[in-house]
Design a protein around this nucleic acid. Structure first.
Lengths: 154, 154
DNA sequence: GGTGAAAGACATCCCAC
DNA sequence: GTGGGATGTCTTTCACC
């Protein structure tokens, strides 16, 4: 379900997804609304689930996880049992930041946070010990040009 | 640079990257620290940049951007001028949530947020009008098994 | 949509231990 | 590290235009 947002709602969303540490006063000033009107809209956006939550973003390098890998996975078992087993296997692997079932000839893509290449091998061993995968390959991030959680709000 | 964290710091980071809307009182209770000690650590983690910031996460479906695409890009111009032009081209495309230069035979991976497949075509046209790309292909997300901003803190 | 006011919660920063 | 406490700010909810 999609909602209809006016320019105030959009401005609030755009601002909060860049910086959720703003006080209501600051936020209301930036979006050109009174504090009360702004507060009412923020609460409504939170209650309706448009704002899924607020989180702290952590510098992965500073906590010893500088390496990002994209792991491309193919399976030869295209049934829901395999998918469920796969999901269960992933839930025990905190390094996995995202896991998507895809269109096209690659079946799944994972984004994985790691300490180093040796850490990838440990991750790989743990994953393949949990579930049978017909084809798996990894590619590592050398450089981030862009990396944001922001959703485009047009 | 990597820091040394004790179990309290780790608990704070793990908690805040799940939910940054907690009050200091709630946070300190969860990590089993006094309010004061907890407050000092949070401030220090913010000041040192381990906590990069706090953001609101927005439900992309509810703002009309339900489709995620991974765009795989190859270039035949492996020089820094192309990389800079590419970065400049991307900065004008708010749909791009992340863009990484990769190891291996695919040169760049983009994660792009879109309204629908027709929107991808518009995105594609705008991108190739800005920069020459020797090979580009897209794969679309059918299903998210996992999608989090959390960094594993071990 | 806007104002202002008021109660309480919360963050902030002391201090002493 | 802990706790108490003073201070001011921010949130939240009113009633009302």
């Amino acid at each position: 379900m999609t909602y209809e947002f006016d320019d105030f709602d959009k401005a609030i969303l755009r601002t909060l997804q860049k910086d959720a540490s703003l006080s209501m006063d600051d936020l209301s000033e930036r979006v050109h609304l009174s504090r009360n009107a702004c507060w009412r809209r923020v609460k409504q956006l939170e209650q309706s689930g448009v704002v899924r939550g607020r989180v702290a973003l952590i510098d992965a390098r500073k906590v010893g996880m500088p390496l990002t890998a994209f792991v491309l996975i193919r399976t030869d078992q295209h049934d829901s049992a395999w998918n469920q087993n796969f999901q269960k296997a992933l839930s025990g692997l905190p390094e996995v930041q995202s896991a998507h079932r895809m269109t096209g000839d690659l079946d799944y893509v994972l984004r994985v946070r790691l300490a180093d290449i040796a850490d990838y091998d440990r991750f790989y061993q743990r994953l393949v010990s949990k579930i049978s995968i017909s084809d798996i390959s990894a590619s590592f991030v050398m450089d981030d040009l862009i990396d944001t959680t922001e959703v485009p709000i047009l």
